[in-house]
Design a binder for these strands. Structure first.
Lengths: 226, 226
DNA sequence: GGGCATATACCTCGAAAGAGGTAATCCATG
DNA sequence: CATGGATTACCTCTTTCGAGGTATATGCCC
């Protein structure tokens, strides 16, 4: 490697469309300060590649063949919190956006944007800024105001009671202990837990605990747990 | 409150010896920049008091009547990571020291130290430094070198295999998934898990997950999970 | 070679977790 | 007032965890 430039930014791309990847590769030729250190089309490939190449930034498609990009994002964040992850997808669904931001994405770009804008976005992201496709600004406004308009089961805000339970889970407490702590039945705690897991789209209490601890550290002002 | 000084440092004391507490109160009169915002003699009192007063620093005795100070420390860290916790105890046991440092204590002082030194220690701790009683320096050396000399069941280093498992747990994986991932039996994973929990003195996988995620964030260079 | 730690596997057993469903109460908002 | 969310509780059922125990093979250090 030539040691001429200070240090190239390392970029990793996860997308299951070979043609799209080719497009990005092409595009990156106009960004000499960015080096593409790896590509992946699946979750496994992505994690393997990322663990080896340790990129500065990951361009991540949400819809892959097997797993979803959200999963990958949730796997990357805890392991390598310093890696920036920018979502690059076709989905302008409010749900995907909120989930990605909640999971700690550095940016959310739509695939139909102009190549130049995309490059600009990546450059800003590398500087640590949070970037967002223009078309999503209005959506974000709604999200930040907590005025999600869609079906209740997908709200991104937890109720007071749920927050108390989440806090307890994040300390490793069992359902029984939480019940005792809050003066309710263990069965009721389970009910809450089930709803919490469905809403947060997390699989079990361990993921929940890790997620909360991430949240409270990385974005105390934005976290969903007041 | 008089708004004369910039802002007093808030200190919270947890110790079940009223007389010792009185001694500290006395001592703090010589530290006008430090304000004692609360005291507690038990775990419950401590957590309640801390959650209300939000001190900058907690002076924590390890041996309390009911719970141990270690427990309190483990409860404080995840909830209020910004609060500094300085252990103040009679125990010069290597085990207590390592456990406290592992759990994120800012300092570890012995109760037999000179009051002036104690005050100095607290002042340094408030500035974010890690403080340690002189008498423990040698012990710490041994600890950091991983040359713990005591019984094997209490070693503070995890084996390679155990680390792999811990990493997986920290991502919310179930034993079955880990088994598949590592190509071993779920039963074997369980065996490892049991040993890991015994060694780390953690109660369940949730605590383990949170602990690991704390470690990797707060002290990437010192963490027990290589 | 004799310990000792590690890693593997299998066994039982009880506790904990999570998914389902039903249902009652309270409270806010339309 | 009606609808719907939040909170509470109880039911069943399956899966997962974690604590015991036993056992074998490997490799390392004294």
């Amino acid at each position: 490697m030539s040691s001429k430039e200070h240090k190239k930014h390392k970029l990793f791309m996860v997308d299951d469309h070979p043609v799209f990847r080719r497009g990005i590769r092409q595009l990156l030729q106009f960004a000499p300060e960015i080096e593409l250190v790896g590509e992946a089309a699946s979750c496994d490939e992505a994690l393997a590649g990322i663990s080896v190449t340790r990129p500065d930034l990951v361009l991540l498609d949400l819809r892959l063949h097997k797993n979803s990009g959200h999963e990958i994002l949730r796997l990357i964040r805890p392991q390598w919190p310093e890696i920036k992850v920018v979502i690059l997808t076709v989905s302008d669904a409010e749900e995907d956006l909120t989930e990605a931001l909640r999971d700690g994405a550095t940016g959310y770009l739509l695939k139909d944007m102009e190549p130049e804008e995309l490059l600009e976005g990546v450059r800003h992201a590398l500087k640590g800024e949070i970037i967002l496709s223009q078309r999503l600004r209005s959506t974000l406004g709604r999200v930040l105001n907590g005025t999600g308009r869609d079906d209740p089961e997908k709200k991104n805000v937890l109720s007071r009671r749920e927050c108390e339970i989440v806090a307890a889970v994040a300390q490793g407490k069992t359902n029984k202990m939480i019940a005792q702590l809050l003066g309710i039945t263990e069965e009721t705690v389970k009910v809450h837990m089930k709803r919490i897991l469905r809403r947060t789209k997390l699989k079990n209490r361990v993921e929940l605990a890790v997620w909360v601890n991430d949240q409270s550290r990385l974005a105390p002002a934005t976290r969903a747990i007041p």
